[in-house]
Amino acid sequence: MKRNTWIKWIIVYSVLILFLVAALFPVYWMANTSFKFQKEIYNPAPTFWPHVFTLSGYKEVLFDKGFLNNIKNSLIVSCTVTLISAVVSYIAAYAIVKLDFPGRKFSSKAVLYAYLLPRTVLYIPLYLFISKIGLSDTLLGLILIYPTFTIPYATWMLIAYLKSIPEGLEESAEIDGCSKLQSMVRIALPLSLPGVMSTVIFMFTMCWSEYLYALVVIQESAKKTITLALSNMMIGDIFAWGPLMAGSIICTLPVLLMYVLSSRYLVTGTTMGAVKG
């Protein structure tokens, strides 16, 4: 028995390390590059750590280029869109899974069809729409069109998560006189919280790293999001690698933070014992 667990842990940790290396190598390379001067970056023999360490990339991107402002803009858009999409998608997903109503199957599939039109052409009519209602060059305009890619994803993932929670709890609650709405919030939500949280984090990430729509909608530099700010550093055919990598590393921090902070909610345990008997 003990030997079995021993082997198991060896396998688990070896695979984990493999995954970590594969996932993190490029990220490590980004960080590595962000601390170097350009000359070292172009060294034909790549250096695995900066021989000459510098923070000039970070300094340039944060202070000279007003990156903090871009971060603010991205935060506003991402948080708003994520919040609204989460609420709207959750209730829709709940309805699709737990309730029956005319048009249920059709409308849920139609939502997913939104992904069939690729963004590289979709941006034109969306921009036409935005400018007709006078929201071009505004963050609100972005907030209006971002849900086109968050809502279909969120709705369907939540459908899957809601389907996997045990039904027993809701049934007994209803017998106790709980309404559907209450059950939706008080019972289904906590049970599916890991799924909801991971959906929220992914939606945030999608908005955070979105580039094309932002490029088209936003003109004024004060309103630019971080992806636009990064792309702005790619002038002509020579990129400012140092600041670019520094900016990119900075970009990843908010999502990392979100993830670490929400890890409490990503573990279930609240249902233990509730269904027994």
């Binding site: 941006y123 034109i124 921009y127 036409l128 400018s131 007709k132 071009s136 094309l212 490029l215 088209v216």
Partner: peptide
């Protein structure tokens, strides 16, 4: 990209 969006939207 910007020219296209601009021209198409007027």
């Amino acid at each position: 990209t910007k020219w296209t969006a601009a021209i198409e939207s007027g």
